[in-house]
C-alpha cells in the first residue's frame, strides 16, 4: 500500500544519507515521483514508553504518559499523524547507569540494544532518562534507521513530560520537538543563515536558536538579513528552542517534509494497522 500512497519509490539504496544537499535533491525527486494526496495522509504511530530509572527516580505515571500522548496528538493534528500507546507495553528499566546515559554514549547504545521494545520500523520507541548536562532530549533522524535500527527513537529528560520537574520545559512540547526530528525535521535555525537551512521553504532562516519567550512585538529577532520584508522569525515553531508554552506550530512546508521523509525512510510505519480508517478510505478511493 505504501507504493500506492506515494507512487513509485526512488532508488532506496541512495537514500541512506545525512548529506543536506543530497537529501534535498533526493526529496525533490521523491516528491516529483510520488503521489502524496494530502487528504489521504493519516497515520497512527504506536508509541512504546521505556522508562529508565534509578529506583524511584525517573518513574513516570500513567497520567503523565496519557498527557504526553495528548500533547503529541494536539501538536501533530494538522499533519494527519496521531500517536497511541498501550499501558501493557510500558517498560521500566531500573538501572542507575543507563538512567544517566549521555547522548551518543556507550550507555545509550547498551540500553537501547537491550531494551528496545518493538520493531523501530513500525513504531516509536520513546525512552525517558536523566542524561544531565542540561540536556532535554534527542532523537535519531529517519535516514539513520536503516543503518542503525537499534538506536532508533527519542530519548527525553524524564522531567520534560507533562507534570514533570523541568519547568519551563515540562508541558510535553520537548517530545513534540524531538519527534519532529524523528520524523525528519531539522531546527528552523539549521545552518544559520547559510542555505539550504532546514530545507523547508516556509520557515524563514534565522541565525541561531531563540530561547524563553521572545516577544512578538520585537520581531524580527535574529532573522537572517536575506529575508524578504514582512517575514517573521519563527519564534512559535515547534522546531525552535523556545519554552514549551511558546511553541504551537508546524508549517505546511514542514508537514510536506514529514510525509516525504516517512515515504523515503519510514515507510514501515504505513501498515494497514497504523493507517486504520485512512487505509480503508484510500482503498475505496483508488481503483486498482
Amino acid at each position: 500500500m505504501t507504493e500506492a500512497l506515494y507512487g513509485r519509490r526512488c532508488a532506496t539504496h541512495e537514500l541512506s544519507t545525512g548529506d543536506l544537499a543530497r537529501m534535498s535533491a533526493l526529496e525533490d525527486s521523491f516528491r516529483a515521483a510520488s503521489r502524496m494526496e494530502s487528504s489521504l495522509r493519516a497515520l497512527c504511530i504506536k508509541t512504546h514508553f521505556i522508562h529508565v530509572t534509578d529506583g524511584a527516580q525517573g518513574r513516570i505515571s500513567q497520567t503523565q504518559r496519557e498527557d504526553q500522548i495528548a500533547v503529541l496528538n494536539a501538536a501533530y493534528a494538522p499533519t494527519g499523524i496521531s500517536f497511541a500507546y498501550d499501558e501493557d507495553m510500558v517498560v521500566e528499566v531500573d538501572n542507575p547507569d543507563f538512567y544517566r546515559m549521555g547522548h551518543g554514549s556507550l550507555r545509550e547504545r547498551n540500553c537501547k540494544t537491550l531494551h528496545q521494545v518493538d520493531d523501530p520500523q513500525k513504531c516509536l520507541n520513546f525512552y525517558t532518562a536523566a542524561p544531565g548536562g542540561g540536556l532535554l532530549g534527542w532523537a535519531t533522524f529517519p535516514y539513520m534507521m536503516e543503518g542503525d535500527p537499534a538506536m532508533d527513537g527519542v530519548v527525553m529528560l524524564d522531567g520534560t513530560l507533562p507534570g514533570g520537574t523541568a519547568a519551563p520545559y515540562n508541558l510535553g512540547a520537548t517530545a513534540v520537538h524531538e519527534v519532529g526530528h524523528w520524523l525528519g525535521l531539522y531546527h528552523t535555525f539549521q545552518g544559520g543563515c547559510v542555505p539550504p537551512g532546514d530545507d523547508v521553504a516556509d520557515t524563514p532562516a534565522h541565525s541561531g536558536p531563540n530561547y524563553g519567550k521572545p516577544s512578538d512585538s520585537d520581531q524580527p529577532h535574529n532573522l537572517c538579513p536575506t529575508a524578504p520584508a514582512g517575514v517573521l522569525c519563527p519564534i512559535h515553531n515547534y522546531m525552535n528552542y523556545v519554552d514549551d508554552d511558546w511553541m504551537n506550530e508546524f508549517t505546511e512546508g514542514q508537514i510536506e517534509r514529514i510525509w516525504a521523509q516517512i515515504g523515503m525512510f519510514r515507510s514501515g510505519l504505513l501498515t494497514a494497522d497504523n493507517r486504520g480508517e485512512a487505509e480503508a478510505a484510500f482503498a475505496s478511493a483508488v481503483s486498482w
Partner: peptide, 17 residues
C-alpha cells in the same frame, strides 16, 4: 552536527543550567 546532518541533543536555555 548541523553541518554533518547528525542529531543535535537539545539543551535547556543557558539561564536554566
Amino acid at each position: 552536527r548541523e553541518e554533518l546532518g547528525v542529531p543535535v541533543p537539545r539543551r535547556m536555555a543557558p539561564d536554566h543550567i
